[in-house]
Computed example of a mutant assay.
Amino acid sequence: MGEIAVARDEAALVAYSDHIAAEHLQVHTADARAFAQRLRNYGSLFVGELASVVYSDKCVGTNHTLPTMAAGRYTGGLWVGSYVKVATHQWLDERGVKAVAPPAARQSASEGLEGHRRAAQLRLDRMQG
């Protein structure tokens, strides 16, 4: 199923497109490359009259498993990185704690997260005592 949208100006068209977050989005304008740079939410973008879904599905390498139902607002399609485990960590020295503990404690207090607030404040207090 496809859709053609008519908008009052390019800004409205970009906003509409980003809201819809189409699985497949084709851009056919006088300067398709420049216009495409303004778009943010889509599964796969086909820029210009020569680009086609058939190429991405069959041989170009852009992906075939794309976000549907406007999920393109927050995620892209399946790619090799989808199969890679990403593990994060943190390490802080005293200077780092002194920099992040006060705003972390304030933010935690404003959210009513007393345990988080105390965890930040206790670490800061230990360094000062």
Rank of each mutant, 00 (worst) to 15 (best):
R123G: 06
A36H: 03
A109C: 01
A32T: 06
Q128P: 00
H28M: 15
P103C: 04
A119C: 08
V14M: 04
Q26D: 11
G43P: 00
P67F: 01
H89S: 15
K85V: 15
A30P: 10
Q90H: 11
G72T: 01
Y55F: 14
D18Q: 13
A104S: 08
K85W: 02
Q121L: 03
A5T: 06
S82T: 15
L50Y: 11
S108K: 03
D31I: 00
Q121N: 01
Y42V: 01
V80P: 10
L113M: 08
L25M: 13
C59F: 14
R117Q: 15
V54S: 13
K98P: 04
T88R: 13
N63L: 02
R95M: 05
R33F: 07
V6S: 08
T65E: 06
Y83E: 05
K58F: 09
A12H: 09
G2S: 14
T62P: 13
A101L: 03
R117K: 14
L39F: 04
R73G: 09
V27C: 11
P103H: 01
A109R: 10
A30S: 12
T65M: 09
T62F: 06
V60W: 07
E23V: 06
E10K: 14
I4H: 06
A119S: 15
L13Y: 01
L78I: 12
A104E: 02
G48W: 04
D125P: 05
L78W: 10
S82P: 12
G48Y: 05
Y16I: 13
T65D: 07
M127L: 15
V100S: 00
E23T: 11
A7C: 13
K58M: 11
H24M: 12
G61T: 04
V84R: 14
M69G: 12
T88A: 12
P103S: 02
C59E: 06
Y83F: 15
P67S: 01
V97F: 01
Y83H: 09
G72S: 07
V14C: 08
A71T: 10
S82F: 08
V100I: 15
G81E: 08
R126M: 12
A5M: 10
G72D: 04
G43L: 04
I4N: 04
G61R: 08
G129N: 14
H116Y: 03
T62W: 04
A104F: 02
T29L: 12
V14Q: 05
V47W: 11
V86M: 14
D18N: 15
M127Q: 12
R118E: 10
A87F: 06
V100Q: 01
H89V: 12
N41Y: 00
W91E: 13
Q90R: 13
G48H: 07
G61A: 06
G48S: 09
P67K: 00
S108R: 06
V100D: 00
K85Y: 02
V86Q: 15
L92E: 03
T68M: 09
A34W: 00
M69C: 13
S108W: 01
E49R: 15
Q26P: 14
T62Q: 14
F35R: 11
A99N: 09
V14G: 08
A71Q: 14
R33P: 10
G96I: 00
Q26M: 13
L25A: 11
G72F: 04
R8L: 02
L78P: 10
T65N: 08
Q107V: 08
L45Q: 05
L113S: 07
A51T: 15
A32H: 05
A101D: 03
A70E: 14
A32C: 11
